[in-house]
Design a protein around this nucleic acid. Structure first.
Lengths: 139, 139, 139, 139
DNA sequence: GTGGTCTAGACCACC
DNA sequence: GTGGTCTAGACCACG
């Protein structure tokens, strides 16, 4: 299980957790049915309050990425909310625009940005990240 | 002068202003020496508190993008802070990673993301955006 | 025997079971003296823990809907607890209020809600639901 | 401002709050743009922890009923999430089914249930409930 | 043991 | 003042 948080970061801890889990799903390292560690275990491991992890899980559940079953655990949703909504699409455009603008201010060219994207793709697809807890394994 | 803010957005208003001005600089629609509207005028136009605009200007000044000349107004800095700092570089990587991850969750492919980037490039370079207030044109 | 459970549901599994049995009694598909499947059989069929079914039966027994005869099985009670208690009445009002509110938020009218009620009535009275295990038919 | 909670209730406090606010919206006593009391004020008034109210507000926001603006307050959403989704529709059917079943067990007839619905309609539309805090008013 | 709820504080960013 | 985040506990319901 590799999940990293940077306590003083600009991004709230619970969002760092959300993002890493969503990254793992996006990269295929977590797929439908995989069990996530209990929010208590994860909080212990990351040395943060259980509620903080729970908040991340709650939001992910509200977004449809994971589902919880009382007394049993938390799992990656069977049907992931794919399919670009209009809102998603416009947000992606805004993000792309932000990235490009940011890059130009730093003196990069369009080709440099595209290289950045390719690097990110490789990183997301390959990163070891988050070890799901499959059936009886783990302690 | 076209500047748009969304009050309920995730991004604080003052950051929305900062970003749009930085975008305009990145896109060449604002260049060294161009005058920005006074924070009072801008606040009136956007129907927000003057302090909020002032905060955006202050931060931009602290970052070196603009400079104020007491009694004369606010101008885009003569020497813009180009040149990728280490911090900037790592932040760009993080942004790229976020964009790609977000896109994959929405079901897009790497090629789709690259297209998004190209679209953003065109939009940033061409958009009319922020109309600088050149020389004497007052109000 | 048709009994359906949704593991990740808001309602605990044991309550889903209780509700479906109470529905069957309300709809006349189960009546006084009908035998219910053993909690072990039912748990096997639903692929859940036997304790969960037992809890549902225990609660139903505490409420007076069913009775167990040691060594013989579980049966629908001879004298069902009809007669609206004050508590039941106020709960019914609360449920009705919840339903109406929920419907209005979804854009429905009063008449639509009444239609929903009529549909539900038809469904409850007619549905095949829970097949009681009459007399000697064993497994 | 009238909002009532029953601490020991079956329904969690934060859901009681959610429901009453949704009821108020459904009944037209709260409409788009109305400001809700701050979660701190409301928590004080109800004598519960601020986080509990906040959780109710958070969930309502996730559902699209209200929106928050940092530093300004919380408001009823401009565009309420009307329009029966498939999920909403099936949930309404389930609720209706539950109500009817519950009523029959209590010995009521179909006509009695319809009367219950009509009573609930009157109550929701007329109840004084939740006083929105319009512009400068309040304290 | 798992998730669900709640408390009573705290500090920060924003407007 | 507002909302946003976080802590370090606690108790309960569920399976």
């Amino acid at each position: 299980m590799q999940l990293f948080i940077r306590p003083g970061d600009d991004l709230p801890i619970y969002r760092q957790i959300m993002r890493q889990i969503m990254d793992a799903i996006a990269g295929g390292r977590l797929t439908s049915g995989d069990q996530l560690p209990s929010h208590r275990d994860l909080s212990e491991q990351l040395v943060i309050a259980p509620l903080t992890v729970k908040k991340a899980y709650d939001e992910l559940e509200a977004l449809g990425y994971i589902g919880t079953q009382r007394g049993r655990g938390t799992y990656v949703a069977a049907r992931l909310p794919r399919g670009a909504t209009a809102a998603q699409a416009s947000q992606l455009e805004a993000s792309a625009r932000g990235l490009v603008s940011q890059a130009y201010l730093a003196g990069l060219q369009l080709s440099d940005v595209i290289q950045l994207i390719k690097d990110a793709d490789r990183e997301i697809s390959a990163a070891p990240g988050l070890q799901p807890r499959k059936e009886g394994r783990q302690r």
